[in-house]
Amino acid sequence: MKDITSYTDLRAIYTDTLIDLGKSDERILVMEADLMSASGTKPFKEANPTRLINCGVAEANMVGVASGLSSQGFIPFVNTFGCFATRRAYDQFFLSANYARQNVKLVGTDPGVTATYNGGTHMPFCDAALTRVIPDLVVVEPGDGYSLHHLLKAVYEHKGSVYMRLQRKGNPIVHSKDTKFELGKGIVVQDGSDVTLIATGALMLSQAIEAAKELAKENIKAAVIDMHTIKPLDEELTLAYAKKTGAIVTCENAQMIGGLGGAVSEFLSGTAPTIVRRVGVQDLFGEVGQLDYLIDRFELTPEHIVQEAKKAISLK
C-alpha cells in the first residue's frame, strides 16, 4: 500500500490495510449494512467480490451473521456508524459475538462529534462506555494513520472480538513509521513532569498535543500519552505517569462517563489515588453542526484541556 502520510482519509488506510491482509488470508471478510460508500470499503469488494457481504440496513442481523461466520473460522470486519454498531446491535455483539467467544471485529465509524451533520441521532458518545463493560473485549481507537494501520493488523491477529472506534476523515500524523504499536500498550508521544495528558483517538490526540504546546508556553511540562487501547487499559504506563506527574487529564471524543476517563479513574482510585480531570462529553446528547462548532460546543478544545491541566496541577 501507499505511504501512510500520503493518505488524506483514515478510511482509505483502513480499507487498503484490509486488502493487504486479505491477500494472504481468505478468512478475512468485510461486512456492511448499506454504508459501504461511507466506510470506503468498496475497493475491498473490487479486490474480493464475494468477500464483502452487504447485509442491508439490518445491523442486528449483520452482527449475528458475523458471529456465525466466525464460529466457522472466518474473521469478519463489521462496519457501520458507531451508534448503530453499539446501540443498535448491542445485544447481538454482547451475546452472539462476545459471550459466545467469537472473533468479530466490530468497527464503529464517526465516533463522537465527527458524526457532524448527522447530528444527535447518529452521534456515538456512549459507544466506548457500552463496549468497555463487555468482558474480555478489546476496545481501541487509533490516534493517527500509522496507528490505524498497525493496530488493525494487531486487531486481525488478536484472537477474540474487538471494538474499534474509527474516525473516517482526515489523517493527522502523530507517530512515525518506526513507532511500535501493541494492543494494550499506550505510547508516550512526549514526556513531561508536571501533568499527563492521556488521550485516545485521532481528534483528541491532536488536541492534547496542541494543549501541551500551549502549556509549554507557560513553562508547564505536560506529558502526552496516546492511549489507543481503552480496554485493556495500560495500567503500568498509567501508574508510572500518575506517580511521575501526580496529575492527569484524560481526553476523549466520547461521553466521559464510563470511557477512557472512567477507566483511568477506576484504576488509579484503587492503586495510586491521583487527581484525574476528564475532558470529554459531559452527560449530553449530540447535535448537528460543523466539526469546529461541535468541538467547542462539547468542550473538547485544546483550551479546555489546558484549563483542566491547570486545575489538576492546582489540586495536587
Partner: peptide, 30 residues
Amino acid sequence: MNRTPGVDFTTGSLGQGSSAAAGIALAEKF
C-alpha cells in the same frame, strides 16, 4: 457452545440464533 459438547452455537436471547445459523450456512457456502 463453550460449555456443552455438541452445541453448535450459543443462544438464549431470542432471534439471535437465526442470524448465527445464516452465518454458519454462508460459511459452508464459502
